[in-house]
Amino acid sequence: MLAIEKLSVHYGGIHALQGIGFEVPDGKIVSLIGANGAGKSTTLKSIVGLVKPSSGTASWNGEALTGLPTKDIVERGVVLVPEGRRVFANLTVDENLTLGAYARKDKDGIAADRKRVFELFPRLDERKRQKAGTLSGGEQQMLAVGRALMSRPKLLMMDEPSLGLAPIVVKMIFGIVREINRTGVTVLLIEQNAKAALEIADRGYVLETGRITLQGSGAELLADDRVRKAYLGEAQ
């Protein structure tokens, strides 16, 4: 279980996260929704140690992650698919996947996972010798997810996986997320696309200007008036 307690982050004078707390139970999909600038990315970045929180903790199965180097956090199975995919554009698809398994030594396991990634995303198999920079946005997102899977994540965190993608690709990516979750991987999802994110979520949280303002099951939030008005674009 991932537990966030009173997490605060400052960027210079800006109080980006103001003591938020939430939990991601094992085996579940949790979605964190909110507008641009609400602090969603900051939350994920501080969990993996790319941003240093000013106070509060993130802990994974009872062990504090805060203060650990990113490398150690990733090695514990807490893995982030960053916003904007951030695939290594001048490396091949295959090399990107190899880097996903950078910390692992089990050759057979790595080979098996590579095979599995290619089964999930046949497009990557077709393009494995191609430079990642030549892929389309959707393919890059597939690669980013595949690359994360290569590290055998226990908790997969995804930052805006639907950003800039065609609806059909978004649907496919969310389908894959669900499939990954079924294999026992816990998922923490961050999205501006609130509808898609809440539909697959067991639990959802709404983040507004650095604070959590609403929480509930995915279905509850989807039905909530405030959510419908603010995030689903529905008129009263």
Partner: peptide
């Protein structure tokens, strides 16, 4: 090569 393209993404690959 990964560090040279994107330091933070390299960190996310557990690269020291």
């Amino acid at each position: 090569r990964a560090v040279s393209t994107d330091v933070d993404a390299a960190r996310l690959m557990a690269i020291d």
